[in-house]
Amino acid sequence: MSKPIVATASLAGCFGCHMSLLDIDERILKLIELVEFNKSPIDDIKTFTKQCDIGIIEGGCCNSENIEVLKLFRKNCKILISLGECAIMGGLPAMRNGIPVKECLDEAYLNGPTVGENKEHIMPNDDELPMILDKVYPLHEIVKIDYYLPGCAPRADLIWAAVAALVTGDTLNIPYELVKFD
């Protein structure tokens, strides 16, 4: 039987969840025995080259590109996992939720303490740039998500246990210390 194929992405996240994935230390060798990686920052494959079994996504959706990438993952992966607080509930980027976008952009580009140099009051508006969404969306509000692994970042042991259980088909019993929201 061929190995299950895994793809990963970081949307509106900080890559901390990916770092945590690397934190499984020497088990990463075992992981490579268990699965094959496709589109992922870990192997730097930029586009899907085949249909995947598991998609692991870090970060929420704060702009139009996040939405497109997420939908692409849903299309190309049998199982999607929301990895970490941002993917599950928007996380720190979602602290802007409830505040009008204009207020956020004004603060970022016009009024904030670090924008002194922006004398021409320029707000980035190039067509090539993704468009900012009205709020940061948890992934499951955009596409169907199959599993959730909370944490900021999720503990390496949790990621390992979950991926291993998924691949081997074993039942997943999560010890108390692995489910954390920070």
């Binding site: 139009s64 009008p100 952009l105 900012i132 969404l133 009205d134 709020k135």
Partner: peptide
């Protein structure tokens, strides 16, 4: 979802 931000910029 993008209406506001596009309007602002």
């Amino acid at each position: 979802a993008v209406a506001d931000s596009c309007k602002v910029v």
